[in-house]
Design a protein around this nucleic acid. Sequence first.
DNA 1: CGCTGCCGGTAAACCGTTTTCAACCTCCTA
DNA 2: TAGGAGGTTGAAAACGGTTTACCGGCAGCG
Lengths: 350, 350
Amino acid sequence: MNFIRLFGMKTGQVTIHDIARMLDISASTVSRALSGNTRISRATRDKVKMLAEKLNYQPNVVATNLRTGKSKTIGIVVPHINRNFFSNVIGGIEQTASNAGYRVIITQTHELYEKEVENIRALINARVDGILVSVSGGTKTYDHFNQVKKRGIPLLFFDRTIDEIETGRVMIDDFRAAYKAVKHLIDEGFKHIAHFAGPQHINIYRKRLGGYQEALKESGLSMNEDFIFFDNLTEEKGWKATEKLMKLKNRPDAIFSASDISALGAIKYLKEHGFRIPEDMAVVGFANEPFTSIMDPGLTSVEQKGYLIGVGVASLFLEEIMQSAEARQFRKVIIEPELIIRKSSLKKSR
Amino acid sequence: MNFIRLFGMKTGQVTIHDIARMLDISASTVSRALSGNTRISRATRDKVKMLAEKLNYQPNVVATNLRTGKSKTIGIVVPHINRNFFSNVIGGIEQTASNAGYRVIITQTHELYEKEVENIRALINARVDGILVSVSGGTKTYDHFNQVKKRGIPLLFFDRTIDEIETGRVMIDDFRAAYKAVKHLIDEGFKHIAHFAGPQHINIYRKRLGGYQEALKESGLSMNEDFIFFDNLTEEKGWKATEKLMKLKNRPDAIFSASDISALGAIKYLKEHGFRIPEDMAVVGFANEPFTSIMDPGLTSVEQKGYLIGVGVASLFLEEIMQSAEARQFRKVIIEPELIIRKSSLKKSR
DNA sequence: CGCTGCCGGTAAACCGTTTTCAACCTCCTA
DNA sequence: TAGGAGGTTGAAAACGGTTTACCGGCAGCG
């Protein structure tokens, strides 16, 4: 008759104490044996491991977390989970993290400052080992981020970053992306290039405008104030801006839009009014949304490499926790954007 | 001179012991006071709460989890995070869960059976309070799911379910969705309707085929074997299938595709060969991918309501944990699909 | 022979809560 | 005055691991 009772019977979970009792050794020996500690003899280690295997022992990570103060979990804060770009980033993070034995907790802010503060608080609370953030549009103050740093929790930014806070960060080079896009248009022979810019209080849109200007300047092309539209990120705004452009006496021959969706608006206007793309007007967008490859003509656009950004920021995190909190240095990874060239900007026949 | 030392100084975390010491009461009293236990006098409760507030006390959830056996976390297992449909589902789950005070851990299987088993094991290990799964394409056996049930952890399926396992589940009615789509085509006056079906060993594609057949039968329309293509979910396959269809002597006047992407292939073929949509051939897709609204003509498609499915499955989970494990009953929620009608299927002028 | 060092292991503290079981005080009643 | 009853509180035992401190035995060495 078997009178050995398993501790964890109610939960169906075997504990190291069960194994210890069955082998008539102490729980600490079991713990060490399982972690491969060489202080335990090979013989004992093997015995323990075999029994653990047989009983399908699963360590209680919650107990481990409590004791070690580490949770093997990283928290993510993004504006929206279900945006193509962000879900790609998350995919990359999850992949990298899970390979390194980390779990991933996801939270979304819906661009709300309050939600961001709350999510950060909840993640600190959950004792995550690191927090990866793409900053919400509505973020006003940085106190919640400083809290994270003060607690010694690795904090990293991706895509939407805050310069004032010293952290590791991963983003694409928006300046260079814009430069590349405009340079491509110039190389194709377009000389009068309009720009749909985003709101200039946001970092990345300022940089995209800068890259646009730089490319023009470098090629000695004039800049026309009438060719630049701000706050232009919807399809409708893109449509209307294009309408205005086409009614100018000397109209441009190309548009570089800081977003795919307003580029789509432009293309719809052009098609509706019988203009040919790219002969009458070339269009380049930004973000390489899935629909850009599906449109007719295909929309040339800047691939932001969300997956790669995710892999990058997760790797940076892993790197950071290897170092002691003091020796920590904050790396900045800039990912080279890629211009995906499609028919909407190819003038020359090749 | 202040000689009170906080326990958690290294981590910057205040514990109930710190509060207890400062107020010269016991930790258990603090714990009870904070949880609003009426056994503690109003006066003491207020004192504790005020000090906790002042010190910005944050309970260590890991300790709570260990003690209570609950983690206030739910695990999600999906094939891919960065698929429009799934990221919508996840968005819905996160929203609902976080409102109820639950965190969400995400894992992806990449359609791999082994990954699914591993993820499930890791989630059990992390002591999640529930596991929500959309089954991987490669899943062969169900042992890992039974493990979850045996452990008493609530298991729920969404979208891709397994009939053999008794769980709560949320999905859309694929039969009805297909029926609606085909009925719509019939109502528009189309009489010869082809179908791009998916692989029939997968549940949902069988049902879509069924709905298609039912609608035809109901309207007394004949079914033509040549009009049905299996294993047809890529753009290229859609293109080729359409080519075959158009070369038939008596060709169909409409296509109902079980996926948007193969519908896109169809539309590309039609446009390239000068056929008009929907006059020469109407097309209806499935999934309502973002690009369907952007195409020209817009592609009529079935909206799967990912967000709603997410909300639904999370709500079902919350419902389930309210009940005792024995009294548990498994609800099945079928979400009514919606047909989003666009130009690609509108024959009549309105 | 006495000292040192290593090997293999144990006992107990610890992580921060929750919860069980009492204890204590005061007031009230028999 | 003894004995509840009721209202507050505390000590200690969990939860399941990890880690520190320590111990007995044995080999090596001067």
